[in-house]
Simulated scan of single mutants.
Amino acid sequence: MQPDFSDVSFNKDRQRNGAALQAAQGLRLLPVAVVFNMAALVLGFGADASPMIGIAATVLTVAGFAFGAYGTYLCMDGFGWAGYINVLIVASLLIPYVKIITLVVVFAKTVDMMRTAGYRFTLTGKIVRQER
């Protein structure tokens, strides 16, 4: 007896869906990085008032860079970009005001890629498959 595989269909968008799910892993870290960097920026203005505020701003800056660099790396891994572009984008996270813009652009591009693959991202971190 031969098995009948006539009604079996394969996912034609497998590569796009896989890249979107891979980029979604880093997408969870980007809002945290933006919040840390904004808080460090605000605390940095009051760093002259107290040395503890300066230390807190420095810790938030380092944590924001770490979250942003790792999240951006994971997102770009899903994009399939060349290595030198990845290095340039992560290096732009070292420039004080450019890093917030870079994080927002990578976040928007990742969300757009996920929407085209049929997924929806919420700020709580859930990734939901949209019904077509």
Rank of each mutant, 00 (worst) to 15 (best):
I89M: 10
L123C: 07
A40P: 08
V90I: 15
L88Y: 02
Q25W: 07
F67M: 08
A24M: 05
W81H: 10
G71P: 08
V104M: 11
V62S: 09
A24Q: 10
V32E: 03
R115E: 10
G46P: 01
M52V: 13
C75G: 05
D13Y: 10
P51C: 01
P31H: 05
F45E: 13
R129W: 04
P3T: 10
I53L: 15
G80C: 09
P96R: 06
Q22A: 13
G68P: 05
I100P: 06
G71I: 02
T61W: 13
A20C: 06
A91Y: 02
M1T: 09
A82D: 15
A33N: 06
L60W: 05
L43R: 08
M1F: 11
R16Y: 01
T61V: 03
G71R: 10
G71C: 08
G83Y: 01
V128C: 04
C75E: 02
L94Q: 06
A69C: 07
Y84W: 15
R129A: 08
A82T: 09
S50N: 15
A56K: 03
F10M: 11
F65N: 02
A66M: 12
G118C: 04
Q15I: 14
G125V: 00
R28N: 13
M38S: 13
F36Y: 11
L27S: 10
G54L: 01
S50W: 11
A23N: 01
P3R: 13
V32P: 04
V8K: 10
G118P: 00
A108T: 08
G26A: 07
S9Q: 15
Q15M: 13
F107V: 00
L43P: 04
V90L: 13
L94S: 13
A91N: 00
V90N: 04
G71E: 10
P31W: 01
M76D: 09
A40R: 02
S9I: 15
V128K: 08
G18N: 15
A69W: 03
K12E: 15
A49T: 12
V128W: 00
Q15P: 07
L60E: 02
P51T: 02
I101F: 14
R14C: 11
G54T: 03
A20N: 05
A66D: 08
S6W: 02
V32I: 14
A49S: 14
E131Y: 03
P31L: 00
A66K: 03
G54A: 09
S50V: 08
N17T: 11
V8T: 11
Q15V: 14
R14S: 15
F67Q: 06
I85P: 00
Y73W: 12
R14F: 14
L27A: 12
F107Q: 07
